[in-house]
Computed example of a mutant assay.
Amino acid sequence: MKIKLWILICAFLFSCSSEKEWTFSEKIELPEDVRPLGLTLKGDQFWISDPDNNRILQINNHGQVLDSLTNLNRPMHIASNGEIVYIPNFTSDTIATFENEELRSIQIGDSLDAPASIAMLDKTMAIADFYNHRVLLIEDDKIIKIGSEGRTDGLLYYPTDVALTKDRVVVADAYNNRVQVFDRNGQFIKVIGWQENIKVATGVEVYEKEIFVTDFYGNRVLTYNFEGVLLDTFTNHFNKPTDVLIFNEEMYVANYGENTVTIFSK
Rank of each mutant, 00 (worst) to 15 (best):
E208P: 02
S49W: 00
D141N: 14
Y207F: 15
D44N: 14
L230D: 02
K190Q: 14
C10G: 09
D153Y: 06
P31S: 06
V204D: 06
S111V: 11
A126H: 07
I127K: 05
L5E: 14
L164Y: 01
P159M: 00
L13W: 09
V200S: 09
A116V: 02
I189D: 10
E83K: 11
K123G: 12
R104T: 11
E99G: 06
H237E: 01
I144D: 11
F24Y: 15
N248G: 08
L231Y: 03
A174M: 06
F98W: 14
N225Q: 03
N100S: 13
H62M: 07
D113W: 10
A128T: 08
D141Q: 12
D93L: 09
G63S: 03
E101G: 09
I118W: 05
V170N: 00
L222T: 05
T233Q: 14
I48D: 05
N71K: 15
I146T: 04
V65K: 01
E227V: 05
E21K: 14
Q107V: 11
C16S: 13
N54D: 14
E19S: 09
F182E: 00
R134H: 03
K266F: 12
G82I: 03
S17Y: 11
P88W: 04
V181P: 02
L231G: 07
T165M: 06
